[in-house]
Design a protein around this nucleic acid. Sequence first.
DNA 1: ATTATATCGATAAGTATATATCGATATTTT
DNA 2: AAAATATCGATATATACTTATCGATATAAT
Lengths: 218, 218
Amino acid sequence: MPEENKAGIPLPTVRRLPLYASILFNARDNNQVTISSSYIAKELNLEPIQVRKDLAGIGITGQPRIGFPVVELIEAIEKFLGWDNTSDAFIVGAGNLGAALAGYPGFKKHGLNVVALFDCDYSKIGSKIHDKEVFDIERMGHLTERLGVLIGILAVPAEVAQATTNLMVDAGIKAIWNFTPTKLLVPNGIIVERVDLAASLAVLSSKLTAVIKGKKTN
Amino acid sequence: MPEENKAGIPLPTVRRLPLYASILFNARDNNQVTISSSYIAKELNLEPIQVRKDLAGIGITGQPRIGFPVVELIEAIEKFLGWDNTSDAFIVGAGNLGAALAGYPGFKKHGLNVVALFDCDYSKIGSKIHDKEVFDIERMGHLTERLGVLIGILAVPAEVAQATTNLMVDAGIKAIWNFTPTKLLVPNGIIVERVDLAASLAVLSSKLTAVIKGKKTN
DNA sequence: ATTATATCGATAAGTATATATCGATATTTT
DNA sequence: AAAATATCGATATATACTTATCGATATAAT
């Protein structure tokens, strides 16, 4: 079963879109009207042809010798990734990681608005972290429904990851951004995307070992 | 140029190894001596054949009708990923994220030992975060050399990511685990592995949009 | 006006990764 | 003892993703 997504666009392409966006924001700030695939590619160490294919994927065409229209591209990417209309999200788990995520300024630009945190620790409940209130996790169902929140950011200790997930699903959360190292079991229709630090570290380690042992890496 | 690594093992395989490890740890705790590819596959929503191929990649063979030797597999994965002999690492940036990472208990199991943090904020320098001292970033070169640290975990604000990277490279850091959204420019031979939250969020968003619009997802 | 150049899109080819098939083998069941 | 079953490895096929080729086109240079 091949992984699907919005419009049959390959996931590697989806993952590159935010990179393109950041180059494009710069270009726009510089009042550049058009931008070439080769320029974008150079900035990101990619091949121009890949950039062109990716951009074709989201439906924007360029002009020979001219390039792609910067503003149009930005709008298309923002629309594709849902950055145009912000989604509200809860952070579940108000520990170190939850707090760090609550204070991360980049989410807003990416269409994500953290409205509150949840925890089960009474010493945290009622306090504010980065101006966001920490609620009792018992109230998640109530608030999810009332605020129409679909996205939950899971930042609890691994031991309680699955149990917390169950609570989130019961509460009505539809998409879970999982920052724990746990492989979560969820009912059909619930989306889980994991930030897999262990995998990332594994790649770093294996590259480092390769270099130490004298092999090439890129 | 195809991305290389230690032994010509595909990167997707490397990324799956930590998942296999966690299943295997469970099996060992349960005194299981052998484990089948089909069991591992089921736990991780993979195909048995993929598990077998991956395991063949790190050089462990199984037995028909029996499966793979649990302990041997664990040792092979730990060795491949360098989890057997711990590497020291610095965290650069003692803000929210740096602090969260300093307190993350999982790194030790993955062969990573955070020995100290660095920052340029005098209100933080000299203090301790999760029992680890915060040093003036000026001293990074000195300490990197003295302690033989190769890995730096970059957790500074995006604006200073490149400048900080330059300092790290000058200090002698060989591998950078980049938690910022910045594409870093580094000299040849320096390894960078990025934890790309924007890409991960992009995948989540695009899947969510797909579901909302009524398409299937897995 | 003609030629050169940068760039595009469409199609084709290549590479990397995942999956399927199938004979072989160790255990369990009959 | 024979048959059934679960599993493996090797080889082959299929899918997904990336990169190359090339004719077309808009601008700039001669």
